[in-house]
Amino acid sequence: MSEGVMAETGVRARTRRAILDAAIETLTRTPNASMGEIATAANVGRTTVHRYFPERSDLLDAISADALERVGHATARARVDDGPVPAALVRLCQEFFELGDVMMLLFTMPDLLTRPEWQEETEDDRVLLRLIERGQREGTIDPGLPAEWFQQVLWSLQYTAWEMVRDYAKPKHEALTLCLRTLEKAIAP
């Protein structure tokens, strides 16, 4: 690949990322924002946005795929197979907490969660469920809590923490601390 093509690919990737990031931020605040508003937030022209995402649905598909990819990376960084389950859950929550922008958008625009990729159980879902089940076997998580219930509680706690930051100006570290403290008490055997 020539140097010019590689540079163009790098510029295209950065532009695409800038559009996605601007779309996530803009749509979280204003779910019905126009493509023009997203272009303005990304500091690009509207035609540039349409070059990357011809239709709004293409942009939403890309956001959805990006969110799943981010969850995958966060799950991998959490190293859930290392060490005791409570410590692994803390690492996982810390990693998920950093996804607040895109996850808030998913909760703000629930039609994103109805896309086919969100209807299937992912490997990341299975990783979390296995972690919960391991904790139950080891006695660090209440075995009376079904793993799927616990999974939903974890996402609900994350949402509440993100909401505290966004809507109540709670410092991020305080919101995360509250999330982790509540999680610790919720899972106790």
Rank of each mutant, 00 (worst) to 15 (best):
S2T: 12
M6P: 00
M6C: 07
M6W: 10
A7E: 14
T9C: 02
T9Q: 13
R12V: 14
A13S: 11
R14N: 00
L20Q: 02
I24T: 13
E25Y: 07
L27K: 04
L27Y: 04
T28P: 01
T28M: 05
T30Y: 04
N32E: 14
A33S: 02
S34C: 10
S34D: 11
G36M: 10
A39Q: 01
T40D: 15
V44W: 05
G45D: 14
T48Y: 10
H50W: 01
Y52A: 03
F53C: 04
F53D: 05
R56M: 11
L60R: 06
L60P: 09
D61Y: 06
A67L: 10
A67T: 11
A67Y: 07
R70V: 11
R70T: 09
G72R: 03
H73Y: 09
A74I: 05
T75R: 03
T75C: 05
T75W: 03
A76F: 12
A76L: 13
A76P: 04
R77N: 15
A78C: 08
R79M: 15
D81S: 13
G83H: 02
P84H: 09
R91G: 04
R91L: 02
R91N: 05
L92W: 06
L92T: 03
L92R: 03
C93T: 08
E95G: 03
F96V: 14
F97K: 01
L99H: 02
D101T: 08
V102A: 12
M104E: 15
M104D: 15
T108R: 15
M109W: 03
M109N: 01
P110H: 08
D111C: 00
D111L: 06
D111N: 06
L113C: 05
P116I: 14
P116C: 06
E117Q: 15
W118F: 15
W118E: 03
E121N: 03
T122E: 04
E123H: 08
D124G: 00
D125P: 05
D125F: 13
R126A: 13
V127P: 04
L128W: 02
L128K: 10
L131W: 07
L131N: 06
I132M: 13
I132L: 12
R134N: 03
G135M: 10
G135W: 09
R137I: 08
G139P: 05
T140H: 11
I141G: 00
I141W: 02
P143H: 07
P143V: 02
G144M: 10
L145T: 08
L145Q: 13
A147H: 03
A147Y: 03
A147Q: 05
E148K: 13
W149Q: 12
W149M: 15
F150L: 14
Q151H: 14
V153S: 08
L154Q: 08
L154G: 08
W155M: 04
S156Y: 01
S156M: 11
T160K: 06
M164W: 09
M164E: 15
M164H: 12
M164F: 14
V165M: 13
V165N: 05
R166K: 15
P171H: 07
A175W: 01
L176K: 04
L176T: 00
T177G: 04
L178Q: 12
L178A: 03
R181N: 13
T182I: 04
T182D: 01
L183H: 01
L183F: 00
E184S: 09
K185C: 00
I187F: 04
